[in-house]
């Protein structure tokens, strides 16, 4: 039941307003700090009204941290991860929902188990693999004694190596696998009526045609949702890009922010650091605003 009394209205709005202030306060402080010069930002207490050096600080931050190419890196990285996740999870869910093959349940549970192994848990082995994609095979050869055998016979020492450090592939690939996305799609595919699948079969659509012509268009809003969430998630990744990009030229904007953070004993340029933060926050914001229209449309006009 929805109650509407003036008092209740006031209270709900008050609660809403307090929540909003709590959420937005850190952002406001960042924005204010970014608009003062070095002296003002280090005043105690910090001024609570915006200063006049906003654009100058933005410019300094942009140049100092070399944010132009870093933002591009970040964008390619986050878009790559989001696209990869959307595609991979759609494909895996398609396979799990629409095909009956031996080992299907096993595969389903294997995917499920990866939920318990987030990147942070398996970061060392993942790094080892990224450093040399072929290291697992090398290990197999070594353990089985095959490499010893080959060395004895041919005199060639086997050392397989293919590094992915400092490359977009290395940044993106290990983050693409996603159980969450697979489950999201699985749930959606299960709601697609069987009759639709059968109608497509009668219309001569094979599995791939059905996937491309029927399932993908129907899951547009799902893709938008998953893509946006994953874009944000990837954009904010810190640990993995930090490990994989030893060369600053390949670093992402988020990891490069640390360039702007004052060192101990250095000049406390918090205004510049905050300006840089603002710049790095902007692209995800744009993505969310752009994709929001999709969510809303998807929610209102549910296609039957």
């Amino acid at each position: 039941m929805v109650e509407r009394t003036p008092i209740l209205n006031f209270v709900t709005h008050l609660v809403l307003f307090i929540g909003f202030m709590l959420a937005v306060a850190p952002f406001v402080i960042v924005a204010i700090a970014a608009s003062h010069n070095l002296k003002e930002v280090n005043d105690v207490p910090m001024p609570l009204l915006p200063g006049g050096d906003f654009w100058a600080n933005i410019k300094t931050a942009w140049i100092t941290a070399g944010l132009g190419p870093k933002l591009l890196n970040s964008f390619i990285f986050a878009a790559g991860v989001a696209a990869g996740k959307v595609i991979i999870s759609a494909l895996t869910a398609f396979s799990i929902v629409y095909f009956r093959y031996p080992g299907r349940t096993l595969i389903f549970w294997l995917i499920f188990i990866t939920l318990m192994l987030p990147l942070e848990v398996r970061i060392v082995p993942t790094y080892a693999v990224a450093a040399n994609v072929l290291s697992p095979y090398q290990a197999i050869l070594d353990v089985t004694g095959l490499s010893w055998l080959i060395e004895k016979i041919s005199g060639v020492q086997v050392s397989l190596s293919l590094g992915l450090l400092n490359s977009y592939t290395g940044l993106i690939l290990p983050l693409i696998a996603t159980a969450t996305g697979t489950f999201l799609y699985r749930q959606f595919f299960l709601t697609v009526p069987d009759e639709l699948t059968e109608a497509a079969r009668m219309d001569g659509a094979g599995a791939l045609r059905f996937f491309i012509d029927i399932l993908l268009p129907l899951s547009r809003t799902n893709m938008a949702a998953l893509g946006t969430i994953m874009f944000l998630w990837a954009w904010n990744q810190y640990l993995w890009p930090l490990l994989v990009t030893t060369d600053p030229a390949h670093a992402t904007a988020v990891t490069e922010l640390k360039q702007l953070i004052p060192n101990v004993g250095g000049i406390p340029e918090w205004n510049i650091a905050m300006a840089g933060t603002l710049i790095v926050m902007l692209p995800p914001l744009v993505v969310v605003v752009a994709m929001q229209r999709w969510f809303v449309r998807g929610l209102i006009a549910t296609e039957k």
Binding site: P193, E195, L196, A199, A200, D213, L218, E303, K304
Partner: peptide, 12 residues
């Protein structure tokens, strides 16, 4: 060709 009870038209 088959006509289904719920029509099964492609919604999109």
């Amino acid at each position: 060709a088959m006509v289904f009870q719920n029509y099964a038209l492609y919604p999109h």
